[in-house]
Design a protein around this nucleic acid. Sequence first.
DNA 1: CGGCTATTTTGACATATATCAAGCCAATCC
DNA 2: GGATTGGCTTGATATATGTCAAAATAGCCG
Lengths: 246, 246
Amino acid sequence: MALNEIMRPALAASHFRAACSNCDLRELCLPIDLTDDEMQRLEMLSHHKSNFPAGGYLYRSGDHFKSLYAIRSGSFKTRILHDDGREQVTGFLMAGEIIGLDAISTDTHTCEAVAMEASEVCELPFAKLEALSREIPSLQRHLYKIMSHEIVRDQGIMLLLGSMRAEERLAAFLLNLSQRNAVHGMPPTRFTLRMSRLEIGSYLGMKLETVSRTLSHFQEEGLIRVKARAIEILALSRLREVMEKP
Amino acid sequence: MALNEIMRPALAASHFRAACSNCDLRELCLPIDLTDDEMQRLEMLSHHKSNFPAGGYLYRSGDHFKSLYAIRSGSFKTRILHDDGREQVTGFLMAGEIIGLDAISTDTHTCEAVAMEASEVCELPFAKLEALSREIPSLQRHLYKIMSHEIVRDQGIMLLLGSMRAEERLAAFLLNLSQRNAVHGMPPTRFTLRMSRLEIGSYLGMKLETVSRTLSHFQEEGLIRVKARAIEILALSRLREVMEKP
DNA sequence: CGGCTATTTTGACATATATCAAGCCAATCC
DNA sequence: GGATTGGCTTGATATATGTCAAAATAGCCG
């Protein structure tokens, strides 16, 4: 497995051009291959779109599971809350990605999803999706793939949390974000972080001070430029090396 | 989310009584509700069973994905291998559990599965499973649930790796193993570890010495008795407290 | 049973990261 | 414009865990 695909493989993001009611679902998280007719039937079930302000909840822990959501614009974080109060950010989701996969097994959401900025989602009622997928084999296969994809991604993060050092984690994170911000397959060298140091730390299993220090360190080394939430990647290949250093 | 369900929720294990060709698939990882007729059709596609000696590979990284496997007896570990040589154990799978879910998104296995003892599996050809699930809605739903379940489990491990200390991780691990060794819903107080300290360490993101030390420490505290791979849980509730200590 | 190897335990020490504590900067509000 | 707020950076120190090394134990094979 390639290290630069750890956080979320390249396919997942960015090509999805949502227009809801007429959502272009052709690139729903992963490329999907449907006939025009099938496409139309898929689009019919994704009528409902909603807007969320920064900080708004898409769903909360314990909510009844009804739908998956395709993020049309903006970004979300998902987090788990413990009985004992601990919390952990389990994912950052951006435009073009599917959110809500955790809940299928329980009919109840196990984590909560919060908008990190003003965002728009397309609702995909799961029961309908399921029914339709029974009639359209390639849609069914697609759903399986999306879920399996999520499993692979999570296992990548397990790897990262279990056996990489702070520097490597952060390098992997930055490279991944850059990929997911890609516009036409082109990862930008400049982009802005949508999340705080605290949230990054929670996601990567380190304290916010360590995140900050490590970013500063990368800057001293000439790998990146960082000013608050604006990031510029100066030495992509050297950043990759940092990530892969055993 | 309850901490004692972190590693693998209780439902996943133990009730599955496999008999292959006539595999009892009624408890396939999660409880499943099918008519006799549907059950028969499901069983028809799971003819093939195979045996593996300790150390045998069920599949390797890069193998073409064809089937899921229901573990009939024994146990497996799954591990990811890096380009740079690092490896991480991503799961321990026991009798009654489904293995192979990682590979659906890529048609290629992203990790490898190795038997930790002499083991027997039931092969479930995925294409057939998929086709059949198109005709049996509750089977389809079941497959989605199994996969979602795996996602939830992985996220629990992310939580564990990202925000728990060595003691807490190991306590969670022991409690989880005990649950999954449950015979009729009854978790045993005595059981034997099927994996080495090194493997446990890899899975939990700590070094084998730390695993050993922490076990010894639990023993000094009177929480468990440990002799090589034989474990006895002496103070279940106090062990739970260790796990939940923030 | 005895010897052999791999695994496990234990110890002393090193180090990455957490913790605690200021200070800084940028946005927001009167 | 000055004050207030929340996030970010930086420093000094503490601590959990990693590292290296040796001894003890368990499992295995002849």
